[in-house]
Design a protein around this nucleic acid. Structure first.
Length: 511
RNA sequence: GGGCCAUUAGCUCAGUGGUAGAGCAGGUGACUUUUAAUCACUUGGUCGGGGGUUCGAAUCCCUCAUGGCUCACCA
């Protein structure tokens, strides 16, 4: 049983639906016909006008268009209505003389904003010059029983100005279908997103990468420090986790002989929600044999610039108040330099966590007494450096104790070959010269257990199967991970991740 | 999880202790080239839920829910 009780507006629409039925018109017919999209119909008119010689008259151009009624102006014996399909809007010119009393009255009285209709007639221009369909026959394709929050709009200098738009963010996300139906620019965001995905795949494919798919349900989660969602398989009586990263499964494939692999898919992290965090998000990871993290940097710059050009037409983008130039080369700076520059602490002078914490407090910063040295350095990065990294920047050479999958820098026991890259003040991704020494890797896992001994969820169990794979020999390789949602935030100039997810996670609402 | 703010008609919003409002949408009517069409009349509300203070609460207090911003957390 549904909970729906029609309100006054909906009851009225149900009456209209019955009236259509009584007049012999099925309000939800099986089939529809269309000869032209709205855009094609308009182009047809424009082209034949352009081809016209002086003194000639336009030929008759009959079109059948379909779409949702988005405006309705009843002028007595003429109705002007716009319908919208995915290609755009076109005006219907509906006149009593051209339809006859019965059909005209039905159109005028029993249709509502939001209904889908099909209309046939000659395409022409009204006196005001707007391309329109002079409707001679029409039928309803779907009766909208609930009123959409359709807003009036006006085009001023090519810009759509909307009045009283459906803008309540909570309702827009809870009823994304209504948001998409009435806010055309929201539809554009997800078209841009699809275009971005295609551009990324093309770039990888043209660089000899193989796209693969690895398990979402994993008996041992790993590859990142995050709390997982857990579930279980009934029949196998097996505890399972939704993946928090693809890392360990992808690198096993290098052992298997693939040299360049990538995966685009969903990761799940049981953490807080924010303007740049959603519990499930789309991750891109790649691994390339015989690359180091400098190769990965070169590739990353080119990939992001190429993607931006494909999606927006330019490698220079506008994000909020900033204009960002994504064209290579990007700034490269070690983490030590960056922290020296923005926090004015040279952390190598404080090789002990307690000393570093004191130094951080001295500049007014936050330092948890339980934090490890690496965590403190990372804290400085997040608090002092990250907000300043508006133009794209690689920050390189990270503390070893927070980077369990990266290779050590020779003669520098504290640092590893790892970079993160930042754009628009956001961390976009993370990459390493990947550790391929199985004995070192085992030690790193053991060190992690000490680091996270207080937090069982972060202290994921050692993945023995992954170590076994490494012992068979893993080629040296460079690896990379990036939050795709954040990239489309940049390219579509959206300040929250929810605007680039069709169905962002929301708390359950009890109606 | 903490702090601050918000929640009023289908939509967008006014209303800060004294009879719940506007615009749009809806309804009725007028108008045969309109376009935020226009004009006249008009329907519509458990003011997010619950509790309290008060002669009287949309308004003040408490609480719960949801959302936003923010802080914390998220290698």
């Amino acid at each position: 049983m549904s909970n729906w009780q029609p309100n006054a507006l909906e009851s009225r629409r149900i009456e209209k639906m019955e009236a259509l039925r009584a007049a012999g018109m099925d309000p939800f017919p099986l089939r529809a016909e269309r000869t032209h999209t709205a855009q094609q119909a308009i182009h047809l008119l424009e082209k034949s006008e352009a081809d016209l010689n002086d003194g000639d008259t336009l030929p008759d151009m009959k079109v059948t268009v379909t779409g949702r009624i988005v405006s309705f102006r009843d002028k007595g014996k003429i109705v002007f209505a716009h319908i919208e399909d995915e290609s755009g809007r076109i005006q219907l010119f509906v006149r009593l003389n051209n339809l006859g009393q019965e059909s005209y009255e039905l159109f005028k009285k029993q249709l509502d904003l939001g209904d889908f209709v099909q209309a046939t007639g000659l395409i022409f221009r009204t006196r005001m010059g707007e391309p329109s369909v002079n409707v001679t026959t029409w039928k309803i394709l779907s009766k909208a029983l609930s009123p959409l929050p359709v807003a009036k709009e006006q085009e001023v200098d090519g810009e759509v100005v909307r009045y009283s738009a459906f803008s309540d963010v909570e309702e827009r996300y809870r009823q994304r279908y209504a948001d998409l139906a009435v806010n055309r620019e929201v539809r554009d965001v997800f078209r841009a997103r699809a275009k971005m995905m295609t551009a990324i795949r093309q770039f990888f494919d043209s660089n000899d990468f193989l796209e693969v798919e690895t398990p979402v349900l994993q008996p041992i989660y790993g590859g990142a420090a995050a709390r997982p969602f857990s579930t279980h398989h009934n029949q196998l009586k097996q505890e399972l986790f939704l993946r928090i990263s693809f890392e360990l499964y992808l690198k096993r494939l290098l052992v298997g002989g693939y040299e360049r692999v990538y995966e685009i898919g969903r990761d799940f992290r049981n953490e807080g929600v924010s303007f740049k965090h959603n519990p499930e998000f789309t991750q891109l990871e790649f691994y390339a044999a015989y690359w180091d993290y400098y190769d990965v940097m070169d590739f990353t710059e080119r990939m992001i610039a190429h993607t931006a050009e494909t999606v927006t037409g330019s490698s220079t983008i506008v994000f909020g108040d900033h204009t960002i130039n994504l064209a290579p080369p990007w700034t490269r700076m070690t983490l030590r330099e960056a922290i020296k520059k923005y926090a004015e602490i040279d952390y190598v002078e404080y090789p002990d966590a307690a000393e570093l914490a004191t130094a951080i407090k001295k500049i007014g910063g936050q330092a948890s007494p339980s934090a490890s040295w690496g965590k403190l350095v990372d804290g400085l990065l997040g608090d002092y450096v990250e907000p300043n990294l508006i133009q794209p920047a690689f920050i390189t050479e990270y503390p070893r104790d927070i980077s369990p999958f990266a290779k050590k820098i020779p003669n520098d026991p504290a640092h590893v070959e790892r970079f993160e890259f930042f754009i628009g003040g956001m961390e976009m991704g993370n990459a390493f010269t990947e550790l391929n020494d199985p004995l070192d890797q085992e030690q790193r896992f053991l060190d992690l257990q000490t680091l996270y001994k207080a937090d069982e969820d972060l202290n994921n169990p050692i993945d023995d199967d992954y170590l076994r794979a490494m012992r068979y020999g893993m080629p040296p390789n460079g690896g990379f991970g990036m939050g795709i949602d954040r990239l489309i935030m940049l390219l579509a100039d959206k300040s929250t991740i929810r605007e680039v997810l069709l169905y962002p996670h929301l708390r359950e609402k009890i109606e």
